[in-house]
């Protein structure tokens, strides 16, 4: 433990970092993920092609210096579109994931910890699971689209709507898993011990339960990002998402599938971006889980 340099191995976060560092996959995943974020955020500063500019004379072009990833059927620059699409997709993925995570963890913990809430919360979880997703999305977008559009403009309005819709329709799995873990941990000796010395419920949850269920939450989070990106693309495909000229990875992928025989690379770029992001987030989550799990620490 002498190579930790600036980090004090005695502090809990230092210990997490040491543990995380030893996980090769997590380190590589984290690096790739951070580079994707940086590329997507800073990319447009050095690649200042307008992703929505059409140039019909340069349609369906292959890879060249002018167009590093080629152009689509209307002559839009694919590289610029992938960069712009990434910002939207990642923003949607993260925000929707956070929302569903907070909802899922909250409901899961409450249901698992407080017996009197369990029945009510779990039945409402079942209710949400039983709801047919697409008709529900149709109704929600139909009811609130115009209001949000008037209040925030077409793009921000739709962004909020999509994030909200994905968030409130994908928390159920997390809630169920969290509840199960909480039920098990609640009966463990250290929680019983804390209870017996008079620790309050909120303190037990934050100090003892939450740290022990971080791993399933982390796994849910990583899967949630992927799920949100894919749900967003499905929504856009049905015409419920962003306007059709507003690039997102899911939409780019959808648009490109028709051209798979003509220019296969068009499917590869957004597909690669989605896969790399999801894979690296998964590895990152894996490493974080190992590092954060107090039972595995020091092993």
């Amino acid at each position: 433990m002498s190579d930790t340099g600036l980090v004090n191995p005695e502090s809990p976060w230092g210990e997490v970092w040491v543990k995380f560092k030893s996980h090769k996959g997590a380190l590589i995943g984290g690096t790739i993920f951070i580079s994707i974020i940086l590329l997507v955020l800073l990319g447009p500063m050095f690649w200042d092609v307008d992703p929505q500019r059409l140039n019909i004379r340069e349609k369906n072009q292959g890879i060249s210096f002018a167009h590093p990833m080629g152009t689509d059927q209307l002559g839009r620059d694919t590289f610029a579109q992938v960069l712009a699409g990434g910002r939207v997709s990642l923003a949607v993925g993260f925000t929707a994931m956070l929302l569903s995570l907070v909802l899922g963890a909250l409901i899961g913990v409450l249901a698992g910890y407080f017996k009197w809430l369990d029945g009510l919360l779990m039945r409402s979880t079942d209710l949400f699971l039983a709801l047919p997703l697409l008709p529900l999305l149709l109704v929600i977008t139909m009811l609130y689209r115009d209001t949000l559009r008037a209040a925030f403009g077409p793009e921000t309005g739709i962004f909020l709507l999509i994030v909200f819709v994905i968030g409130i329709t994908s928390w159920m799995q997390t809630a169920r898993i969290v509840r199960g873990d909480v039920l098990a941990i609640k009966e463990r000796e250290f929680v019983q011990a804390a209870k017996s010395v008079g620790t309050g419920s909120s303190r037990i949850i934050t100090r003892h339960v939450l740290p022990n269920i971080l791993s399933p939450i982390m796994v849910s989070a990583t899967l949630g990002i992927a799920n949100a990106i894919i749900t967003e693309s499905a929504l856009s495909f049905l015409g419920l998402g962003f306007p059709s000229d507003f690039p997102t990875w899911g939409r780019l992928l959808n648009d490109a599938t028709a051209f798979i025989t003509l220019s296969p690379e068009r499917v590869i770029w957004p597909g690669l971006a989605i896969s790399l992001t999801v894979l690296s987030v998964n590895y990152l989550g894996d490493g974080l889980r190992d590092a954060l799990d107090p039972r595995q620490r020091g092993r």
Partner: peptide, 30 residues
């Protein structure tokens, strides 16, 4: 309606209307 050819048409028209100072918001419906 949602159809790849129609969305291409929309994108082109939006650009041309932009050239004459008309703002366009696109919407496609199943």
């Amino acid at each position: 309606s949602t159809n790849a050819v129609r969305q291409d048409t929309q994108a082109l028209v939006k650009q041309w209307w932009g050239d004459i100072g008309v703002e366009t918001e696109l919407r496609n419906i199943d």
